[in-house]
């Protein structure tokens, strides 16, 4: 999975994709995860950080991360590979 490095993420969850011109908003967990992705963290790193900080079990986390990543893909913010 590769993040589109040109995207801009603001602190309050505003995302801009200069290639497509699309903008988005993220909720708090969304900001945190996308920021980690952009800084080059692996999915396993991300899972570890989230599991440490939040009350969530592995299965639930896995399920909603997958969901989130497919939304990111759908919106061309990340690409497979």
């Amino acid at each position: 999975m590769k993040i589109n490095q040109s995207i801009a993420i603001s602190e309050n969850g505003f995302v801009f994709n200069p290639i497509t011109g699309d903008s988005f908003t993220l909720n708090n967990t969304g900001i945190q995860i996308l920021t980690m992705l952009k800084s080059g963290k692996t999915i396993d790193d991300i899972k570890e950080v989230i599991a440490e900080e939040y009350d969530v079990d592995d299965l639930v986390l896995e399920r909603y991360l997958q969901d989130f990543f497919s939304d990111l893909k759908l919106n061309s913010l990340i690409t497979e590979g």
């Binding site: 969304g30 939040y54 009350d55």
Partner: peptide, 16 residues
């Protein structure tokens, strides 16, 4: 105490 986990979301904004 750990925080409540909210499902991460991303919502497209449609300008104008």
């Amino acid at each position: 105490e750990k925080k409540i986990f909210e499902r991460p979301t991303i919502t497209r904004l449609t300008p104008g």
